[in-house]
């Protein structure tokens, strides 16, 4: 099948266009999404294409943006709402956690909330403590919400399409560091079911599990490790909930060494919970203690030179991977 090299941003734009063409009930609202095309330029041209009825600006009213999206979804629309920065989810947390995520459950499973909340997250560009958080880990306990974190243009496109078609509310976390990244996107993307991890590289010595912006870093690490004779498998869970533990456990069972990496703070992070599940269920398969490489346990300064001390880097993964490969038992046998 033929493919094109396009940016993550363009891939998201294509997904929106295609889903809006496919389903009249889909509309897009958010701050500066219309004529301006979004502060990260994801919705460029959409208002021209679909008109102001389906693509429109909102006031600076995040509580309404999310809550209004929940209400519109309950009424039968398929809203896609944009939060300029994922950090602003915090002023709509009741609407996300108590409304979007719980409505179905607490009302006896008789209604769906087919809402997509797109939000730009991540430690990138010196935007400071209130515009730089990596949010996935706050949503482990949002059982009625699907939280997705695409890491490549192809995933951005197929996952956003899947999110819009899904009958559950989806928090769709786009990483700011990835918008300009380019990669192959098939002309006809497959709309994968949500909740399938992607094994990006096969290996035999350790498994690296990486989310969002850390996926590309993990792949670079795997290449460098290969030159040193260490073979790393790289898996991208592509989201927080639902979590494809089958794919992850299968890799851990085969390899026995696992390193988990993500951008958000290490304490209480994505890695901590995943490693707890691994240790709890397959302690006997592990050849060495699992390793975490994640964000520093502090806030993200606006100063770019300090921001880089918060975000995990290639060297951190390499150091942890080398150590992991060299410790523990030699094999499961």
């Amino acid at each position: 099948m033929s493919e094109r090299i396009i940016s993550y941003r363009a891939a998201l734009n294509e997904a929106l266009v295609e889903e809006m063409e496919r389903d009249e009930r889909v509309f897009l609202m958010g701050q500066d999404v219309a004529k301006f095309g979004g502060v990260f330029a994801v919705s460029k041209g959409l208002q021209d294409k679909f008109g102001p009825k389906r693509v429109f600006d909102t006031p600076i009213s995040e509580t309404l943006i999310v809550g209004g999206g929940v209400g519109a979804a309950l009424a039968g629309a398929r809203p896609v709402v944009e939060l300029q920065y994922a950090d602003f989810a915090l002023v709509a947390m009741d609407e996300i956690l108590n409304k979007a995520a719980k409505w179905r459950y607490m009302h006896g499973n008789r209604q769906s909330v087919p809402l997509v909340i797109r939000a730009a997250e991540g430690m990138f560009g010196g935007l400071g403590p209130e515009h730089s958080q990596s949010f996935g880990q706050y949503f482990w306990n949002a059982f009625g919400l699907k939280t997705l974190m695409p890491s490549t243009p192809a995933d951005a496109k197929s996952m956003l399409k899947a999110a819009i078609r899904d009958d559950d509310p989806v928090l769709f976390l786009e990483n700011k560091a990835l918008y300009n990244r380019r990669g192959p996107v098939p002309d006809e993307v497959e709309v994968d079911p949500i909740g399938k991890a992607s094994t990006i590289r096969n290996g035999t010595d350790l498994t690296i599990i990486a989310w969002s912006s850390m996926v590309a870093v993990a792949l670079k690490a795997a290449e460098a490790l290969a030159e040193e004779g260490i073979s790393a498998e790289v898996i991208d869970p592509r989201g927080v909930r639902p979590l494809d533990t089958a794919t992850i456990f299968n890799s851990v069972d085969r390899i026995g060494r696992v390193l988990v990496t993500h951008e958000g703070p290490v304490t209480g992070g994505l890695a901590g919970e995943l490693i707890a599940q691994i240790v709890e269920t397959r302690f006997d398969k592990l050849l060495a203690p699992p390793a975490r490489v994640a964000g520093a346990d502090t806030y993200v300064p606006q100063n770019l030179e300090l921001e880089r001390f918060i975000v995990p880097h290639l060297e951190h993964i390499l150091a942890a991977a080398r150590k992991l490969a060299a410790t523990g038992k030699s094999s499961t046998q």
């Binding site: 010196g126 400071g128 606006q302 100063n303």
Partner: peptide
């Protein structure tokens, strides 16, 4: 203390 590198804090 150099955290800000901006004007907003």
């Amino acid at each position: 203390g150099g955290l800000g590198a901006g004007i907003v804090h």
